[in-house]
Design a protein around this nucleic acid. Structure first.
Length: 557
DNA sequence: CATTGAATAT
DNA sequence: CATATTCAAT
């Protein structure tokens, strides 16, 4: 998306050669600034006198893209004069003393930005944005010749992005893209805003975006799944084309930000396709499905008409296969008992995913796990009929009621399906570890969108429980259908744990686990004792009264 | 007050 | 449907 190395690459050269008019009465200051600008490969023309600068502009209207003008208290006249006479040139005012009044006046007079001195590379590096902004927001008629090439350049870059974005992401990601874009913008802001005062080069961005949501900014979602995590930094730049220009005449009360909010719906709906906003009418995202499971990339452009931009509220998370994969991986890594949203989130490291997002997905994940036979490869997303019917079936054996729940009624209740398995990476051995639950293969089991399960139907159908272990919930795998891992498990597991008696310590562990976590299914095919039997056992032992909850469950002798 | 999982809404 | 949001319990 906006931030990939490639994209950035594309951007990198653009500002170079930008023609900057520098007007500063203080020679040393001027040369200092000039150096900084030139360090960024900007083409700087220095002037020490307003009139000279203005005449230069008039004699060469297309000679400059942007101006940086000093407006010191002493010679303020010059600065403002320039501002008033060079309205076609995006002008950035600078001053050593940042008095609010001066700042406001500058802005009111049409300055695109006010930067307090000393100027730093940080403050200067983004000045090109004003140029782009101008290029896109000025009416075609007003667009000076010098800006056209820039506009074209930008357009081509954007177009490029679009084209390049074949990677991943889904179709409906468009909306997300938008998200991204704005998000990045924000980032930019944050960065610049961070360093002390507001020296950001993109004032418009600020208002535009922020105010709107802060409240729920956490809800963001963007993913470029994978990679981006690495390239964070602050290199991403986004073009902002906000519409609210600072009008020269507006008086000192810039605080008036009225922005147009866009309802999420706009995005949601619009994102379907037409919503491309924009600069470039034809910008759109392109799907590319290189390899089966990757999805297309998103792309976004912002429109220049005054309405897009900001609202980046929370868009829906698109659980692409990649993302889901990460999710699953995390879940597996954590193991069933630790797979909680916050942890999963940590492991996934997908920026902007929220705990809520994960929780929600986790919920779905668990549900699916529950429904599909525990050990297999997923399958069936479709025959819900089957799924539903079977679900109870499958679950029942696995459930472990806490002892006091005697109620033998087949309620779908407290079952905790093992949708996640301890350690997928750890070979079979691990299985024996702590939780010691047999692995069934949760992970892949969950076939995500891309491919429908293979032998799906055949699979965990409750109707065809594995011959060998009707009562053994973990063994529902049907021989031919399992994945290699599953098969492996099948062979190794049964052997040690069933054909022979498991080692004592193993049993201990398992029992311990079972006691500590009564909500989990009992391992080893054990069934929870019925209340009656428990009571009976207790009375045998001379215990007639039950403590009532709190106190731990009766140990399975 | 933060997290979790389930229920419910969109 | 797939996600998000809300809710009740920890």
């Amino acid at each position: 998306m906006v931030c990939t190395a490639n994209d950035l690459q594309g951007w990198k050269d653009f500002p170079k050669g930008l023609r900057v008019l520098l007007l500063d009465g203080d020679r040393s200051s001027a040369s200092e600034i000039r150096e900084q600008l030139e360090a960024m490969d900007y083409n700087v023309s220095t002037f020490y006198d307003v009139n000279e600068a203005l005449s230069a502009i008039s004699s060469s209207p297309e000679g400059f893209h942007v101006a940086i003008v000093e407006v010191s208290t002493s010679s303020s006249l010059g600065g403002f004069k320039f501002l008033e006479n060079a309205k076609d040139l995006p002008t950035i005012m600078t001053s050593k003393n940042q008095c609010l009044n001066t700042t406001m006046k500058c802005i009111a007079l049409g300055a695109v930005e006010f930067l307090s001195k000393p100027l730093s590379e940080d403050k200067l590096k983004n000045i090109w944005q004003h140029v782009v902004h101008k290029a896109f927001n000025a009416g075609e008629n007003v667009l000076s010749e010098s800006l056209k090439p820039i506009k074209e350049s930008v357009e081509s870059v954007l177009q490029l992005q679009t084209d390049n974005q074949h990677d991943k992401t889904h179709k409906r990601t468009m909306s997300i893209d938008l998200e991204n874009v704005s998000r990045f913008s924000d980032d930019d802001n944050e960065q610049s805003v961070c360093d002390k005062y507001p020296a950001p080069s993109t004032p418009q961005l600020k208002h535009g975006t922020r105010l709107l949501d802060d409240g729920d900014c956490h809800e963001q979602t963007n993913f470029s799944t994978e990679k981006e995590s690495e390239e964070h930094g602050g290199e991403c730049k986004s073009v902002e084309t906000s519409c609210e220009n600072l009008n020269a005449e507006s008086s000192p009360q810039p605080m008036e930000l009225k922005q147009t909010l866009i309802k999420e719906e706009d995005f949601a709906n619009g994102s379907q396709g037409e919503r491309a906003v924009s600069l470039n009418p034809n910008m759109e995202k392109i799907h590319g499905n290189a390899d089966g499971n990757t999805s297309p990339k998103k792309t976004e452009v912002l429109n220049d008409s005054c309405e897009i931009k900001a609202n980046r509220k929370k868009m829906k998370v698109d659980w692409t296969p990649e993302l889901h994969k990460k999710f699953v991986k995390a879940v597996e890594q954590l193991g069933i008992d630790q797979a909680i949203p916050s942890r999963i989130l940590e492991i996934m490291k997908v920026e902007d995913l929220t705990r809520h997002n994960v929780a929600s997905h986790l919920q779905k994940y668990r549900i699916h796990k529950r429904q599909s036979a525990p050990g297999e490869e997923d399958r069936k997303w479709h025959n819900q009929r089957d799924a539903t019917q079977r679900s109870y079936y499958l679950q029942r054996p696995i459930m472990a009621y806490p002892p006091y729940h005697s109620n033998p009624t087949p309620s779908p209740a407290p079952i905790y399906p093992m949708w996640g398995q301890p350690g997928s990476q750890s070979a079979g051995v691990q299985i024996w570890g702590p939780p010691a639950y047999p692995l069934w293969h949760p992970t892949e089991s969950w076939h995500w969108k891309p491919y429908p399960g293979v032998h799906v139907d055949a699979w965990g159908c409750p109707l065809f429980p594995p011959p060998q272990a009707p009562g053994f919930p973990y063994n529902q795998n049907v021989p031919g259908l399992q994945t290699p891992k599953a098969a492996e498990y099948r062979f190794s597991m049964p052997r040690s744990s069933f054909e022979h008696h498991p080692a004592e310590e193993v049993v201990d562990k398992v029992v311990k686990e079972a006691i500590n976590k009564p909500w989990l299914p009992l391992p080893l095919g054990l069934k929870a004792p019925s209340m009656d039997s428990v009571l009976a056992e207790l009375s045998k032992q001379g215990i007639s009264s039950i403590p009532n909850k709190g106190s731990s469950a009766p140990k399975p002798c």
